[in-house]
C-alpha cells in the first residue's frame, strides 16, 4: 500500500503500537502516520479498536508497547507541562459530545479559552458566540444545558468546544453516528469546510461511508490488529475480505454511486 509520497510534516506518528486488555490483543504492532492538513479516516468493524486507537493517540490510554508522537513529542514520555502545551494544539470531539452537563453550551465552549489563555471577558464572550455560530448552532442554544439539546446539537456544541483554541489537529470519534442523514451530511460538510479554511489535520473515526467520501484524503482500515492505509481508491481495491465487503457491500456501493453522481 502507498502512503509514502512526500506530504510534508508528520503531525501524528505511531510506531509498533500494542494494546492489550486482559487476554485480548486489540492492536499488535500498529504503525500509522497523519500528515499536516490531511484528513485520515479510520474504519473497522465493531470492537476492532478504532476508539482505543484514538484514545491512545490523545494520551488517555497508555499502550503496552510502542510509541505515539504528536507534533514530534512522545505523548507518554513528556512532562505534565509539555502535555499541557500539546493539548492546546488539538481538539477532540467525543462520541456523544462529552459536554460538561452542569455548564451551558456557551460555558462549555469557554472552558478551554478560560483555562489556557488570559483573555478579557468580553473577548471570550465574543469568541464563544462566534464559535457557536461557526458550528452552525442557533444562537439560543448558547444558554441551554446539554440535556436540553438534541444529539445533533450536542455534537455541534462539542465541535465548537473542540475548535475553541483553534487546534491544529481535530480528533473526531464517530461524529455522525446517531444523526439523521441530513444532519450527518451537514456535519460532514461543516467539517470539510473547517478543514480547508483552517488548514486542520483531521483524525476521523467512523462507520459512516458517506463521511469517508465527503471528508477524508486517506483511509486507514483496522483489520487483523493493524491498519492498512491508502487513498480511497487504493483501499477499496484491497482484497482483504473485511475491506472488500465494507466497500463493496450494498451500503458501500450506494455511497460510491452517490459520490459519482455528485462529483
Amino acid at each position: 500500500m502507498s502512503g509514502r509520497k512526500t506530504r510534508g510534516e508528520r503531525v501524528i506518528r505511531v510506531r509498533g503500537l500494542v494494546n492489550r486488555f486482559g487476554a485480548e490483543t486489540v492492536h499488535d504492532g500498529l504503525d500509522l502516520d497523519v500528515f499536516r492538513g490531511e484528513a485520515l479516516g479510520v474504519v473497522g468493524g465493531s470492537g476492532s479498536g478504532k476508539s482505543v486507537l484514538l484514545r491512545t493517540i490523545i494520551g488517555l490510554n497508555r499502550p503496552e508497547k510502542g510509541t505515539v508522537e504528536v507534533f514530534g513529542e512522545d505523548v507518554y514520555r513528556i512532562s505534565e507541562r509539555e502535555r499541557h502545551e500539546l493539548e492546546k494544539r488539538w481538539g477532540v470531539l467525543f462520541q456523544d459530545g462529552a459536554l460538561f452537563s452542569s455548564l451551558t453550551v456557551a460555558e462549555n465552549v469557554a472552558v478551554p479559552l478560560v483555562e489556557h489563555l488570559r483573555l478579557p471577558e468580553p473577548l471570550i464572550a465574543e469568541i464563544v458566540a462566534f464559535k457557536i455560530r461557526l458550528a452552525r448552532l442557533p444562537a439560543d442554544a448558547a444558554t441551554k444545558f446539554p440535556a436540553q439539546l438534541s444529539g445533533g446539537m450536542r455534537k455541534r456544541a462539542g465541535l465548537a468546544r473542540a475548535l475553541a483554541l483553534d487546534p491544529e489537529i481535530l480528533f473526531l470519534d464517530e461524529p455522525t453516528s446517531g444523526l439523521d442523514p441530513i444532519a450527518a451530511s451537514e456535519l460532514d460538510s461543516l467539517i470539510r469546510d473547517l478543514k480547508s479554511s483552517l488548514g486542520l489535520s483531521v483524525f476521523l473515526v467512523t462507520h459512516d461511508l458517506d463521511s469517508l467520501f465527503a471528508i477524508c484524503d486517506r483511509i486507514a482500515v483496522l483489520v487483523d490488529k493493524r491498519v492498512r492505509v491508502g487513498t480511497l481508491d487504493e483501499v477499496s481495491r484491497d482484497d482483504h475480505p473485511w475491506t472488500h465487503s465494507y466497500f463493496h457491500g450494498p451500503r458501500g456501493r450506494a455511497a460510491e454511486l452517490q459520490k459519482a453522481q455528485i462529483g
Binding site: A106, F130, L134, R136
Partner: peptide, 19 residues
Amino acid sequence: PLLAQLRAASAQAPVLPER
C-alpha cells in the same frame, strides 16, 4: 477561504443572549 467562511458564519454580529 477562512475569512470568507467566517464572514458567512457571522453575517449578523454574534451576540450571546443574556441569561
